[in-house]
C-alpha cells in the first residue's frame, strides 16, 4: 500500500468537503473493496476519508419504501424484518453475497460501488486494461475469461460487476441518494451504472466529491413474490457464474407484473427489460419463461471461455421464474 493520510469524518457535509478539497482522496467505509484494491496497488489514494462514523446507519420505513442508510451493513439489512417479509430477493441476495465476516463489514453504499473481480484489472503489472488505463486494451479478452461478463461487454472490456445485492435492487427500481458539495440528488439505480462497452474506465455516474447517503427501495405490491437464485461452482462463498433476481405478480395464471435482474453476466447489474416485456401479460408457464430468457441473452457478446454463460444465464432465469411462480401457485 502506498502511504496515505487518514482522516475520520464526523458529519456528511464535512466528508463531502474533504473529498471536494482533494481530487485524489478516497472514501473508506467497510473497506472490503477499497483496502483490498489498495493492497493490490490498484488504488493509491494519498488521503483516505473514513466515513464509517457518519450518521448514515439507519433503516427507515417510509410509507411504501424502505430507506437504507449508506453505512448499514449487509448483515444488518438482511436481518431487517420488513426486508425479510416484503423483499425476500433482497435478503437472499445479501445472504448469498459474501461470508458473514464480510457482511458485517461491507456497507450497502460500498456494495453498490464494489469493483470488478477481474484479475487482469486487479494486477497492476498487467499493462492492457482499459479500465485502469483507457486505450491500453483488454488483456482479459484474450486471456482466461471464465468469470467474465457477456452483457454490456465488448472487446474493450469484459469485467464483470460482481454484486448480488445490486442485481436485486436494479430489478426493484431502487433509487440512490447522493450528497454533493453543492447539492444532493437522487438517481434511479437503473441509470446509476454505466456499461463497460461504453466506458470501461467509468462504472457509474457518481462524481468525485459525491457521497452515497442512502438507498431507497420501493416495496412491491403485497401480492408479489420474489427470489434470488445464485449459481456458482462452490456451494457457498463464491461470486456468481450466473444469478437471477425475480419478482412476479401472477393473477389467475397470468403474469401481471415482472421484474428481472441478472447477475454474473453483466458489466453492470443487469436489468432484464426484454424478459419483463415478454413476461408481462403472458401466462406463467415454462414456455413463456424460456421465451423471456431467450430474449434477455440475445445480445450477449462472448469470448472463448464465456460462451457457457449464455445458456447458463437462460437456464438460471427460467429456474428462478419457475421457483417464484410455483410459490405463487
Amino acid at each position: 500500500m502506498r502511504a496515505f493520510d487518514y482522516v475520520r469524518a464526523t458529519d456528511t457535509r464535512e466528508a463531502v468537503r474533504l473529498l471536494a478539497d482533494d481530487p485524489a482522496a478516497s472514501c473508506l467505509a467497510g473497506g472490503t473493496t477499497q483496502l483490498d484494491l489498495m493492497k493490490d496497488g490498484i488504488l493509491e489514494p494519498p488521503r483516505l476519508i473514513d466515513i464509517t462514523r457518519l450518521p448514515l446507519h439507519g433503516i427507515e420505513h417510509r410509507g411504501e419504501s424502505v430507506h437504507v442508510g449508506a453505512l448499514v451493513t449487509m448483515e444488518e439489512l438482511a436481518a431487517d424484518a420488513t426486508v425479510a417479509e416484503r423483499l425476500p430477493m433482497v435478503r437472499e441476495a445479501l445472504l448469498l453475497g459474501a461470508s458473514v465476516q464480510l457482511r458485517n463489514m461491507a456497507t450497502i453504499g460500498g456494495n453498490l460501488l464494489q469493483r470488478t473481480r477481474c484479475r487482469y484489472f486487479r494486477d497492476p503489472t498487467v499493462g492492457e486494461c482499459n479500465k485502469r488505463s483507457p486505450g491500453s486494451g483488454c488483456a482479459a479478452v484474450q486471456g482466461a475469461a471464465r468469470m467474465h461478463a457477456v452483457l454490456g461487454a465488448s472487446e474493450r472490456c469484459i469485467a464483470l460487476h460482481a454484486s448480488d445485492l445490486a442485481v436485486a435492487l436494479v430489478a426493484l427500481d431502487a433509487v440512490v441518494h447522493i450528497q454533493g458539495p453543492a447539492e444532493s440528488r437522487s438517481v434511479p439505480l437503473t441509470e446509476f451504472y454505466l456499461t463497460a462497452d461504453v466506458s470501461p474506465e467509468r462504472e457509474n455516474v457518481l462524481e468525485h466529491a459525491e457521497l452515497i447517503t442512502g438507498v431507497e427501495i420501493p416495496l412491491p405490491p403485497s401480492a408479489a413474490r420474489s427470489g434470488y437464485l445464485k449459481v456458482r461452482d462452490r456451494a457457498s462463498y463464491e461470486f456468481a457464474l450466473a444469478s437471477a433476481a425475480v419478482l412476479l405478480v401472477v393473477e389467475g395464471g397470468t403474469i401481471r407484473q415482472a421484474r428481472v435482474g441478472l447477475g454474473g453476466v453483466g458489466t453492470k447489474p443487469w436489468r432484464a427489460y426484454e424478459a419483463e416485456h415478454v413476461l408481462t401479460g403472458a401466462p406463467a408457464t415454462t414456455a413463456t419463461f424460456l421465451q423471456a430468457a431467450e430474449a434477455t441473452m440475445r445480445d450477449a457478446w462472448t469470448v472463448p471461455g464465456t460462451e457457457f454463460k449464455v445458456p447458463l444465464a437462460r437456464r438460471t432465469l427460467v429456474r428462478e421464474l419457475q421457483n417464484v411462480s410455483r410459490v405463487m401457485a
Binding site: Y6, G31, L35, E75, V100, Q101, N104, M105
Partner: peptide
C-alpha cells in the same frame, strides 16, 4: 460481531 482484521485499518 465477527469481521476480518486484514481488511480493517
Amino acid at each position: 460481531r465477527r469481521v476480518l482484521a486484514c481488511l480493517t485499518l
